[in-house]
Simulated scan of single mutants.
Amino acid sequence: MRKKLKEIQDESNRKYVESIAGFDGTELLFASGYKLTINLSIVNISIDHPHGYSYAFNLFAPDSDGNPTVRILATDNAHAPLDSKHPHDHWHDTKFGPGGFVPIGVKKAKSIEMNNIEQHIGKFIRESEILLMKLGQPVDIIQMNIEKNI
């Protein structure tokens, strides 16, 4: 019975994914030069992808040349974090340099529990905005690009 319930939950969650799969390849460019990326694809359900999708959401800071290439916040399910074998859902918090004011990358992954992808995207965007505000950066989005990953 428990396995059947899990399959029903996965199928329900998969419908959420199908409804928002159009966001795959989305980039949000902030006035501050930071960039948020959303990569989301439907995959076969497996032990590594029990929800039936693969995702990676990243927030990038500008490098010394002003190009947003320094990953400072991330969540994905590309691999199992050290603190858990399965599922692969995990979060990379921001790693700050000396003094604790300048983001220099991301910390090692920590396992998270995720109920559905819609809420997870929303949480990531909110956490990105909170981080930008903490850094004193504007959260105004000046450009949105959608490049389909085919």
Rank of each mutant, 00 (worst) to 15 (best):
A61G: 14
F57C: 06
Y34Q: 04
I72N: 03
A31I: 02
I47T: 13
R71L: 12
L82R: 06
I142A: 10
I125C: 14
E11V: 06
I8R: 08
K4W: 06
G105E: 00
N13K: 06
T75A: 15
K123E: 13
H90Q: 11
K108Y: 06
K95P: 01
L59A: 00
K15Q: 10
L5S: 00
K35N: 01
D93V: 09
I150S: 06
I142Q: 08
E127R: 14
S32L: 01
K148E: 08
G25W: 14
N145L: 10
I104E: 15
M1V: 07
V17R: 11
D48W: 11
V43G: 07
P138S: 07
D140L: 13
G25L: 09
F96V: 02
I117P: 05
I72Y: 02
E129H: 09
D140T: 13
E127A: 15
I42V: 13
H49T: 04
L135I: 03
G33R: 00
N77G: 02
S111M: 10
L131K: 03
I146G: 04
E11G: 05
N115D: 15
A109G: 08
G122E: 10
S12T: 05
Q119R: 09
K85E: 12
E27S: 15
G100W: 09
Y53P: 07
H90D: 02
